[in-house]
Design a protein around this nucleic acid. Structure first.
Lengths: 218, 218
DNA sequence: CTCGCAATTATGCAAGTGTATAATAATTTC
DNA sequence: GAAATTATTATACACTTGCATAATTGCGAG
């Protein structure tokens, strides 16, 4: 008797770093909210998916609310990081095109991503702390887009004032968001690349500059 | 003692038509989902807000799930009805302008409306019946918009093929949806009329026709 | 090597959940 | 106007929820 278990040795659990456990819990939470909505993200489910028992959540977060806030912040940071990476190098025009294109393809366009957004919305509308995170991320995106637009226009020898720039950024941001939303909500309604193409053409039309994603040639 | 109650006579309840009760329950459900998310829309809360006891829900709907489906369908029908009414009479150009304008002002742009949309999304993604309702409404909007766009272009002596028309409709729909979303999610971030103005300019740019909402003069 | 401490599990609880069933009372029917 | 009907209420139940507290157990310090 007492033979060691098939894979594990007979330890009942292993200690992990606080960082590792926190992240595991946060990722499990995001997964569950995307899949089943906040309603389905119960402490027991979260704990199970993170391979711990439910008591541990209270050891790392003083309440479920705090865990959800942490998860939201984590998610939003991931989003902005992905964005910053997407537009890469090159002329302002090509960076803008890359940004639009990347925003309208997987993994950004994805049913889970939209589900996650929707799952958080209620909390965002009611909890001031989450409101701040939301506003910060939205502003980050819009300002980023605005800078790209202004730079692209300048490259074409055109210049606009601050108010016009903001309006263009709001409009372009809206096209992207709208397409993102529809692509995530109706995944089978659009062909591959269709959203990106429509997005590029729409942004082109709005800012008045022809805009083509660079086709990289070997 | 035993004086009759202030307003009511001493009846313990009054019977109402099935139609009235069903609608009351549905409206209570929509209110609650908008306010607190699906999570907050419990049978007891719904019943309380509809001024009945919880048992009655099961008398009109075989399950809570069915009530929620009915509520969703009701909501979507309301949306399409409002839309059809918004664009009114006149030239195709002015009808298109009116449609865009109405879609980007209250009561369409409204935090509760966005909250409602978000609250339903999970169910929509998982329940085939709700998926069908969603798809039907989305198609309705897009086709409606597409027809307006084609007519407006024709009025200007331009014509496009079916594929181009669909792309323009998708793009315009996306701008509207995106602006709608942002206006509902960040109510204080936009001045009155700003969303409508940006929407009109963006749609103008996308379809390549100057488009101004008619200023009605007395 | 063993001891102490913190990470982790185990157990319990009160409140809230959807649903089922029985009891009541308002309206209709004859 | 009494009886049948059924809309409505009242009560109960099994289950889930978040949270609290106690009991373990892995692991590093001495």
């Amino acid at each position: 008797m007492d033979e060691p278990d098939v894979q594990d040795d007979s330890r009942k659990f292993t200690r992990e770093s606080a960082e590792y456990r926190r992240e595991a819990l946060i990722l499990a939470t995001l997964d569950l909210i995307a899949e089943m909505g906040v309603r389905g993200a119960t402490v027991r489910e979260i704990a199970a998916r993170a391979n711990v028992t439910q008591g541990l959540i209270r050891h790392y977060f003083s309440s479920k609310e705090e865990l959800i806030q942490a998860a939201y912040e984590h998610h939003m940071n991931t989003l902005t990081d992905q964005t910053a990476a997407s537009s890469g190098e090159g002329t302002a025009l090509s960076r803008l095109a890359n940004f639009v294109d990347a925003s309208l393809r997987p993994p950004i366009v994805d049913p889970s991503a939209v589900a996650l957004w929707a799952g958080f919305l209620n909390k965002v509308q009611h909890d001031p702390k989450m409101q701040r995170i939301h506003q910060r991320t939205y502003n980050y995106f819009r300002d980023y887009l605005e800078a790209l637009i202004v730079a692209a226009l300048q490259e074409c020898g055109r210049s606009i004032n601050a108010s016009e720039a903001m309006q263009l950024a709001i409009a372009c941001n809206a096209v992207i968001d709208g397409l993102w939303l529809e692509g995530g909500a109706l995944p089978d309604a659009f062909a591959e690349g269709q959203l990106a193409q429509i997005g590029l053409e729409s942004v082109s039309a709005i800012i008045g500059i022809p805009l083509n994603k660079e086709v990289e040639q070997p």
